[in-house]
């Protein structure tokens, strides 16, 4: 299975103006991998998820399921998708888990007996076997989320979209949810796309991370690469922000340069040349170095480095 997103642009218009929620986004997703989409609020994560599942018609571009376009008339392909959407209940809270299974199985044209049997297996894995006849509204947020995921898996979708699946969960429930997703992904070999604005949520389960900023694709990295970057030593060289010549020519030699009112900070990885050379370059501009700090970046540091703050 190959899911291709080609040049998707989505602009929301209202009375006060317009917002570009996605700008020319292109990416390909393959079976067997878990993809994490990361970005701050308003980065376009939910817009992307809703565009993939046909709930939001893009202004430009298309979504392809093995080269079969979703828009304008590819609704039949939606059987390939299971989705948990952020901000929606996704299931009936006044129904029990089993009643939800019966309704959604019938709605999707599934064999009721098979669907119930499959649901019981998933509920068992999710430790929900003793809650089958309890109205969903009486269950915890974590259980509600697990039931919604179980329902979205009934028709055995090839693509599972999870929009902020751990939002509102306590740390223990969040960790359990991550374990379930990881186990399911490794066993089923589906395409799983998870959005979050917390890289730590995706750290343990994703194979690949896509960074979005204000609707624009910033970069994508394998999680292995991101983690290896956290092993690198970075030097933060701090200089006084006064009496210096043009620093533009040396900026590209550093991985990040931040200027504020009092200081200019240069982040440097000693790969191509040594620290001494970096210090010389800064001094040659007239800047006075006041401090050098050595550290290993966290994933959160890399996140902010990618999307900016």
């Amino acid at each position: 299975m190959l899911l291709k997103i080609k040049k998707i642009t989505k602009i929301y218009k209202n009375k006060t103006g317009s917002i570009k929620a996605l700008d020319n986004f292109t990416y390909s997703f393959e079976s067997g991998y878990i993809y994490g989409i990361v970005g701050l609020n308003g980065a376009g994560k939910t817009t992307l998820i809703k565009t993939i599942c046909g709930l939001l018609i893009p202004d430009n571009g298309n979504v392809y399921f093995n080269d079969d376009p979703l828009y304008p008339k590819g609704q039949k392909n939606l059987h390939l998708i299971g989705a948990i959407l952020e901000g929606s209940r996704n299931i009936f809270w006044n129904f029990t888990p089993l009643q939800n299974v019966r309704y959604f199985a019938l709605l999707r044209g599934l064999n009721l007996k098979d669907a119930l049997s499959k649901a019981l297996t998933i509920f068992n894995e999710f430790d929900l076997s003793d809650k089958l006849n309890t109205p969903v509204r009486n269950l915890s947020q974590g259980m509600k989320q697990k039931i919604a995921i179980a329902i979205s898996l009934l028709h055995e979708p090839e693509i599972l979209l999870l929009d902020e699946p751990t939002l509102g969960l306590d740390p223990i429930a969040g960790n359990r949810m991550q374990s379930y997703i990881l186990k399911f992904a490794r066993e089923s070999k589906k395409i799983i796309i998870i959005t979050s604005h917390q890289l730590s949520v995706l750290e343990n389960i994703c194979d690949e991370i896509i960074f979005l900023k204000k609707g624009t694709f910033v970069s994508s990295h394998s999680m292995a690469d991101l983690k290896s970057n956290t092993q690198k030593t970075i030097y933060k060289i701090r200089a006084l922000n006064s009496n210096y010549k043009n620093i533009e020519p040396i900026k590209q030699k550093f991985i990040n340069v931040v200027t504020n009112r009092d200081f200019i900070e240069f982040d440097f990885i000693p790969n191509d040349f040594p620290l001494e050379r970096a210090l010389e370059m800064i001094k040659e501009t007239g800047l006075s170095i006041i401090d050098i700090e050595k550290f290993k970046p966290t994933l959160e540091d890399l996140f902010f480095e990618e999307i900016g703050t």
Partner: peptide, 11 residues
């Protein structure tokens, strides 16, 4: 109740 999108997700 936030269920319409799931129904609209049907093929």
């Amino acid at each position: 109740i936030g269920i319409l999108e799931q129904i609209a997700l049907s093929p």
